[in-house]
C-alpha cells in the first residue's frame, strides 16, 4: 500500500467485500454451532493441528483450479497431473537417491523435484496449447489430458504405489516447525505468491479481464494466447506442488491418489466467491472457503459422523449459501 493513498481509499481497500462478509458470517455461525456441540473437543491444540495437516492438500489443488476458473476456464487434469509428477519425483528418489549421502543426496533431491515439475510443465503447456491455439473448450481439453495423463501413470506403474522416501520428504508431509505443520507452511508459501500474482501483477489483472471478455483483451494489444498458455502452466505447476505434499504425507505416490478432490476443488472455489463464469475472485475468499470446509470436516469427524456425510454437507453448504444470496436479492426487490 503506497503512502499517497488517500484515507477513504485506504479504508476501501481494507473493507471486506460482500463475498468475504458472507463467508465470515457463515464461519461465525459454524463456529458457534460447533462450539455448542463440541466445545473443548474442537477447540484444542490437537484438533486444530489435525485441521492444519489436512487443509493444504485440498488447498493447493484448489489454487490450481482457481486460476483457470478465474480466466473463464477449468482444469480437470489437476489431480492426474499431481499424481504423475509425484510419481516422477518418487521414481527419481527411489532409483537414484537410494543409498546416496551428502552432496549426492542433495543433488538427487533437486533432480527429483526438477523432474516432477518438468512433467507438470509439459502437461500444462499441452493443455494451454490445445486450449489457446487449437480453440478447444477448456473442459474438453483437460478432460482428454486428464484421462491420458492418468493413463500414462497407470501404464507406467500398473497401478502400484512407489514408496520409501528420504526423511526430508516425509518431514514435508508430517513434520512441524514450532508446532506449525510443514504442509501448512508449504500452503502459505504457495498461496501468498498466487494471491500476489492475481491481485497485484499485470498478469493477474489480465487473467481476470480475460475471464470476462478475452476478445476485448486481445484487441487491447495483449497476446491472450500466451496468457492462456501461462494460466494452464501455472495450474499444472501448482498441481505438482500438491502432488509433492500428498506424496510426502502418504510417504508414497500412486496414479489414483486424491481423485475425489477434483470436483471438490471447484466447489471450494465457487464457495470462496470465484465466479464460475470467470472474471472475479480472490485468494482470500478461497482460503476462507477452505477453512469452512475443513472445519465442517473435522467437526463431523469429532461428532463421529462418516466422512461421506461431510461430502454431502459440503455440497449442501454451497447450495445453501447461493440460495440465501438469491433469497436476499429477492427480498431486496420486494421490500422497498
Amino acid at each position: 500500500m503506497s503512502l499517497s493513498m488517500t484515507r477513504p481509499a485506504r479504508i476501501a481497500a481494507l473493507r471486506p467485500g460482500p463475498v468475504m462478509l458472507r463467508l465470515l458470517a457463515l464461519l461465525g455461525a459454524l463456529l458457534l454451532v460447533f462450539a455448542l456441540l463440541l466445545g473443548e473437543r474442537l477447540f484444542n491444540a490437537t484438533a486444530v493441528r489435525s485441521m492444519a495437516f489436512q487443509l493444504p492438500e485440498l488447498g493447493i489443488l484448489s489454487l490450481a483450479m482457481m486460476i483457470p476458473l478465474l480466466s473463464g476456464g477449468l482444469d480437470l487434469s489437476i489431480i492426474a497431473t499431481a499424481n504423475l509428477s509425484a510419481l516422477a519425483m518418487a521414481f527419481v528418489f527411489t532409483h537414484l537417491g537410494a543409498g546416496q549421502a551428502g552432496m549426492m543426496a542433495l543433488a538427487c533431491d533437486v533432480a527429483a523435484l526438477a523432474s516432477g515439475f518438468a512433467v507438470a510443465a509439459a502437461i500444462g503447456l499441452l493443455n494451454g496449447y490445445v486450449i489457446a491455439y487449437l480453440g478447444v473448450s477448456p473442459i474438453l481439453a483437460t478432460l482428454g489430458s486428464m484421462t491420458m495423463v492418468k493413463g500414462i501413470a497407470i501404464g507406467l506403474t500398473h497401478g502400484n504405489v512407489i514408496s520409501g522416501f528420504p526423511a526430508g520428504i516425509v518431514f514435508l508431509g508430517n513434520g512441524s516447525v514450532l508446532g506449525v505443520p510443514m504442509a501448512l507452511i508449504v500452503f502459505v508459501l504457495v498461496a501468498l505468491p498466487v494471491a500476489v500474482i492475481i491481485g497485484r501483477t499485470p498478469l493477474g489483472a489480465i487473467i481476470a479481464m480475460c475471464g470476462s471478455n478475452q476478445e476485448a483483451v486481445r484487441f487491447s494489444g495483449i497476446d491472450t494466447r500466451r496468457v492462456v498458455l501461462r494460466i494452464y502452466l501455472l495450474s499444472a505447476l501448482l498441481s505438482a506442488v500438491a502432488g509433492l505434499v500428498m506424496m510426502a504425507r502418504f510417504n508414497s505416490a500412486n496414479a489414483a491418489y486424491g481423485e475425489s478432490y477434483l470436483l471438490v476443488t471447484i466447489l471450494a472455489a465457487v464457495l470462496g466467491g470465484i465466479d464460475p463464469a470467470g472474471g472475479f475472485g480472490k485468494v482470500g475468499g478461497l482460503v476462507m472457503a477452505l477453512v469452512i470446509l475443513q472445519l465442517i470436516s473435522t467437526a463431523a469427524n469429532l461428532l463421529g459422523m462418516s466422512q461421506f456425510l461431510t461430502l454431502a454437507l459440503w455440497g449442501a453448504i454451497l447450495l445453501a449459501v447461493t440460495g440465501v444470496g438469491r433469497l436476499a436479492d429477492w427480498l431486496r426487490l420486494r421490500l422497498p
Binding site: V130, G135, G144
Partner: peptide, 22 residues
C-alpha cells in the same frame, strides 16, 4: 496391457476434440 488402455482413450479424446474445434 490393460494398464495402457486409459492412456490411449485419453489421447483419442484429445485428438478428437482438437479436430472438432479446428
Amino acid at each position: 496391457p490393460s494398464y495402457w488402455s486409459p492412456c490411449f482413450t485419453g489421447a483419442v479424446i484429445l485428438v478428437a476434440v482438437s479436430l472438432l474445434a479446428i
